[in-house]
């Protein structure tokens, strides 16, 4: 209960609050003796209620004069959703279309399509929080995990800048994991890894990197989704084991070995092989559906003026008092008695 007042100089008037209990609230009617008046519980309660209403009227009016307001606060709420860190591959290959056609100007590039669909994904979720990391040769810290969707949308728009050659998946993931580790509220984290592969044999992890990623993934219990933007070429399965005789190393088949590495982490992991805009859309919808873990999020409630409420309470109490006054009566008095009293 964080309430403050704008003008505290009126608050000393609160000293008037016990007044109704000291001074008569109703016109008194003289009677020879109280012994003849029956004892009555409703009357006593009503008597107290009238005094209390008068006190409330004074208190509420004084507080209203002081113009109270509730402090801005953030309320912790629980909803279903996730804390998703979007890790986007900003390598040069992402500026190509799905069919690796660099020059077809009327087709949408992979990054444009991915950003458009991700923005749509962000717009559809209400309580999810997002962080954004871009990576090429080095990771770029774009946006920490936040519930401000406008900021997320802007960060995703910024991803449309032209790409840089080079792809360093390990550093990008590491930055995303640190981002999760640094955010105490990220209770149900997930990493959405948007990449098209095309690492050219250069991008795979060193042994140290593998170890640190493995530890970090297990520690944060992070879900991992790989949105793999790569068209199927014929019936070649880039993730499957090569035919016998061909070399099966991270250098020759980096996508297959990254996939194997992710599978070996022992976390919730899925790969969505998206080879068309429609497939990406389905993948995003699937991720949205999967990430329904409980999350706590904080809702900011701005400072609020409650003067009107105080006035309303005071008015209501006054209304009760007016009703009591209207009900007020006395013992019958003859007109000539009134005259005598007035003249004497």
């Amino acid at each position: 209960m964080n309430y403050m007042v704008v003008e505290p100089r009126f608050l000393w008037l609160l000293l008037l609050a016990p007044l109704p209990f000291l001074a008569p609230t109703l016109r008194r009617a003289s009677f020879p003796t109280l012994d003849a008046v029956p004892k009555d519980l409703p009357s006593s309660l009503l008597s107290f209620a009238i005094k209390a209403a008068a006190a409330v009227a004074i208190i509420a009016a004084v507080i209203a004069l002081a113009r109270p307001y509730r402090l801005a606060q953030s309320v912790k709420l629980l909803a279903t959703g996730a804390h998703v860190v979007i890790v986007i591959d900003r390598s040069l290959s992402m500026d190509f279309t799905l069919n690796d056609d660099e020059t077809a100007s009327n087709a949408e590039s992979k990054i444009k399509m991915a950003v458009r669909l991700l923005k749509d994904f962000v717009a559809r979720t209400e309580h999810d929080e997002f962080g954004v990391v871009a990576f090429s040769t080095a990771p770029v810290f774009v946006l920490p995990i936040t519930g401000h969707h406008a900021a997320v949308q802007a960060a995703l728009t910024a991803m449309l800048q032209p790409g840089i050659p080079g792809t360093n998946v390990g550093l990008g993931l590491e930055l995303a994991l640190r981002m999760i580790a640094r955010d105490p509220h990220a209770t149900s984290p997930a990493i959405l890894f948007v990449s098209d592969g095309e690492y050219g044999g250069a991008g795979f992890f060193s042994v140290d990197m593998q170890e640190s990623l493995r530890t970090a993934f297990r520690k944060e219990n992070t879900h991992l989704y790989w949105l793999f933007l790569r068209p199927h070429k014929g019936n070649e399965d880039i993730l499957a084991a090569p035919p016998p005789g061909q070399e099966d190393t991270p250098n020759t088949k980096p996508e297959r070995h990254i996939d194997l590495f992710f599978k070996s982490l022992g976390i919730t992991y899925r790969i969505f092989w998206a080879d068309s805009p429609r497939a990406i859309q389905d993948a995003v919808a699937e991720i949205n559906h999967l990430e329904t873990r409980p999350v706590t999020y904080f809702e900011q409630i701005p400072r609020k003026d409650v003067t009107k409420l105080a006035y309303a309470i005071a008015a209501f109490a006054c209304l009760l008092l007016v009703a009591a006054k209207l009900l007020e009566t006395g013992f019958a008095r003859a007109p000539q008695v009134e005259r005598w009293t007035a003249s004497s």
Partner: peptide, 9 residues
């Protein structure tokens, strides 16, 4: 019917 604040004389 009514409210009376009875005072003992």
């Amino acid at each position: 019917l009514g409210l009376i604040d009875v005072r003992d004389l």
